[in-house]
Computed example of a mutant assay.
Amino acid sequence: MASDCTALRSRPRDRIVASARDLFHRHGIRSVGVETIADAAGTNKMTLYRHFGSKDELIVECLQEVADDIQAMWVQLALDHPNDPMAQLHGWVLRGAECVLEDGRGCDLANAAIELTEEGHPARRIIEECKTEFRDKLASLCRSANVTQPELLADTLSLLLEGARVSRQSVGLEGPSAKFVRMSEAVIAAFARN
């Protein structure tokens, strides 16, 4: 099984996407050119363009993988806490804290939204769909956890996570992002039915 994964990872397309995701995450989308991506992937621009007709197509593929990773996180939360929506909600908070602490680069989708401002950019659809689905799943989880005002709780938690990621980027680990778990747990407790 491991050799199958290694073989898949060695395919040029997979190397290109993995390299682009890493470079976009570390340096931003606009500051990374296709030549840099091709070099990091151990290939050339011709091969990159054979798999992706443009840098925009590659960006879309990378962001779709981010969206798929987020979907996998939701599946894992349900597997970790079957039939316990409140435990899943607390698990979401802990996973959010991990994301905040990981490397300080923030959310790849939010960062892409800031960089890709032109209307009609194909990546904007992926960003909007994923962020909307993320919020809707959180609202559904809040409803299942039987809290008061589940939509408001979902929006509050979403904004806390987005804000914690930005705070981590701007003022580091000692800023408000360090209190993300405590703030989120207090908000959940405030919305919980007694």
Rank of each mutant, 00 (worst) to 15 (best):
K45R: 15
T47N: 14
A112I: 06
N194K: 08
G96M: 05
L23E: 02
A97C: 04
A7T: 07
V32S: 01
L77N: 00
E118C: 07
T132P: 00
L48W: 11
E115R: 13
S140C: 08
A87K: 09
N194M: 01
R182S: 12
D136V: 04
G53Y: 11
G163Y: 07
D69V: 02
L8D: 09
A18Y: 05
N83I: 00
A178G: 07
L141F: 06
C62S: 15
A41M: 09
L116W: 12
T117M: 12
F52V: 07
T6V: 14
S54T: 14
I126A: 10
G175Q: 03
S158D: 04
T43A: 10
V32G: 01
R182Q: 12
A189G: 09
K131E: 10
V34C: 04
A40M: 05
P150S: 09
D108P: 10
Q88F: 02
V147F: 05
K131M: 14
G28N: 06
T36D: 03
L157I: 01
A113L: 07
E129G: 05
I37A: 01
C142N: 04
A20V: 03
A178N: 04
R26G: 04
S158M: 01
G163N: 04
T132E: 12
S184W: 03
E35Q: 05
F24G: 02
V171N: 04
F191C: 08
V93N: 08
G53N: 10
R135G: 05
E119G: 07
V93K: 09
P82Y: 08
L173V: 03
A87V: 01
T117F: 10
Q149M: 03
T117D: 10
E61W: 05
A78V: 03
T148C: 04
P82D: 08
L8V: 02
A123W: 12
A123L: 12
G106E: 10
P150W: 08
G42H: 12
M1N: 06
A112F: 11
D4V: 11
D108G: 13
E102A: 14
D22M: 09
D136A: 15
T6I: 15
A87L: 08
T156E: 00
V187D: 05
H90I: 03
A145C: 02
E98T: 10
A18E: 08
A7D: 09
L101W: 09
G104P: 02
I59W: 09
T36L: 01
M183R: 09
R95I: 03
A38V: 00
T148Q: 10
R124D: 10
T148W: 07
R124L: 14
R182I: 03
E162M: 03
S144D: 14
E102L: 13
A38Y: 02
Q169D: 00
I126Q: 07
D103S: 09
L161K: 05
V100A: 11
E118P: 00
A87D: 10
S3R: 14
M183L: 14
E133G: 11
L63A: 13
T156L: 06
D56L: 07
R124S: 15
S170W: 06
A20K: 04
V181F: 06
G33Q: 02
S170Q: 11
Q169G: 01
R193P: 00
